[in-house]
Design a protein around this nucleic acid. Sequence first.
DNA 1: CTGAAAGCGCTTACAG
DNA 2: CTGAAAGCGCTTACAG
Lengths: 337, 337
Amino acid sequence: MSRPKSPTIIDVAREAGVSKSAVSRALLGQGDVSPDTVERVRAVADRLGYVPNAMARGLVSQRTKTLGVVLRDTTIQFYGYLQAAMQRRAAERGYEVVSVTGVDELTVEDAQEALRSLIALRVDGLIVSSAQLSGEDLVRYVDRVPIVVAGRAEYAEGIVSVHCDEEDGGARIAEYVARLGHRDVAVLLVSDRESASQNARGTAMIRTLRASNVKVRVIELDSYRGPVGSAVVTALADPAITALMCPSDVAMVKVLEELRVREIPVPEQISVTGYDGFGYLAEPLFGFTSFRQPIEEIGRTAVDRLIEWVEQGAPVEARTAIPGTVVPGRTTAPPRR
Amino acid sequence: MSRPKSPTIIDVAREAGVSKSAVSRALLGQGDVSPDTVERVRAVADRLGYVPNAMARGLVSQRTKTLGVVLRDTTIQFYGYLQAAMQRRAAERGYEVVSVTGVDELTVEDAQEALRSLIALRVDGLIVSSAQLSGEDLVRYVDRVPIVVAGRAEYAEGIVSVHCDEEDGGARIAEYVARLGHRDVAVLLVSDRESASQNARGTAMIRTLRASNVKVRVIELDSYRGPVGSAVVTALADPAITALMCPSDVAMVKVLEELRVREIPVPEQISVTGYDGFGYLAEPLFGFTSFRQPIEEIGRTAVDRLIEWVEQGAPVEARTAIPGTVVPGRTTAPPRR
DNA sequence: CTGAAAGCGCTTACAG
DNA sequence: CTGAAAGCGCTTACAG
């Protein structure tokens, strides 16, 4: 079963009785063409179902009007939201977006492979949102294609980043807990290597609590998406602790489940906070106390920064930190006495 | 600030002291090349950070080894999971995946535009998971590129589809409710136009309940993601009703919130079921009674069907319905008396 | 085993 | 306003 080839510009030219140069100009709406020709060419193109070959076009024009996006794992809602926001903004500005992603984590090799496949497509610019890709990995390519990191601060030479202001975020939600009156608080901390952003917000929480004379119990988490059972046990072992701060809503959900099976009432016996504040876990049904990341704005700004860079030839601003908001819920209350 | 161009095969050839044909063969590992040449070329390519231009390659070889995916909206977790599953499977089989998506719904025009942009890239095959693209929209292109619809059954001529067996799914969860002893059940129904799959499962629920001599109250929902307040009011108005079946976990979450603010205990006064059973809403904390869609398998199978088609030149199987599983939870119980 | 040549489908100066 | 020509960066027969 042989498949008919797609019609080319030559087919359109023949049918319309003009040269392929004329077809190109007519379809692009650039250069001088008579209105007559434009109309005739458009009609033929339409009738044949002509779709320009983006490869041929990109090869000669050296511009693809396409942005490449590398995402850590789209089963994590953060990345799905980011992707959607970027796609929308890019469309508004006349760019396509192609994304590559992993599952249960891209491995470092997968991520590098993904990056290369996007570079192979000669996208006009790259947005990277994956901890698997270090600043070092990116620097190798940044003299070739503009690269914006979305979702974490990146300090590598020449790379631009757009991210939630985690310093501010961690501080704000910690303040919220301190103001409720908690004086002994457990903070679940993810390592910098696992997730730079989750580590940053956790560190900010700890610093802020201490600055408010709150006694902090730091509990390190091996993985940003692993089990939290032993961390909860550790927290509960200290009866003075009246609040437990999590680095993400997902971690919070797991913590709450551990508390539920132990029949520990939240917030009566212990207050719990999350971080993210969007998507399914932000539904009013759950009433989680959290910190809402400005994810829509992160995606939009990353695209804006990238397009500015692409079009102006130089990065506009190295790092943009966007603030979020505390979302009070029903999982926090003043401490029991 | 002018940007250095990416090195081309010519640059590699010059440095390695061979022709560009030799470089091409060495890098592709095809045709006859001496081991010496291969080694030298590889070393130079590596040193220069050479990344082949996928456009030039695709233009001449007429194959891109790339699959295009159109997704309705990646803020909906179904699509994020699907995307991840497809990406993984494609990678296993040596294909790249490029995705385009919408936000808060692709409009019909956006979706058609997305489809065209993927066709412009001359992807080897297309997977479509968006209700915005009708069978009719797809049929126009299917003689040009293989197209698989993922997530809904599609009957248009020449199109292949892979989807959850909604007939079976709706029937199974309805049986579960009927066996608990419910005799008056409300079913929230989404229109076929809004979501073919949600409509199919709802219709199956209704049919099965009736076949079990359960009295069914059908409540139509305007949108698959809109508010459910008035639907809940309608259901509660009939005091005989002891169970309420939702077409998705997302709808269920909204229903439960309406019940919570009205202080109606679930499942004591009314049992509630969802549908989807994956991602955040499947966390044990919530204990939702639901039906788990085989989403990983849908994604994987869609990719397999597509690649078979691409490589063999003809579709293998028109429609594949994959069964899921009932997930009992804490939102259902035998009816109150 | 190697290189020269043709050509994939476009766009873009350049003449007319 | 229009067309012929060159060329983007590759792969692929085809000679040698």
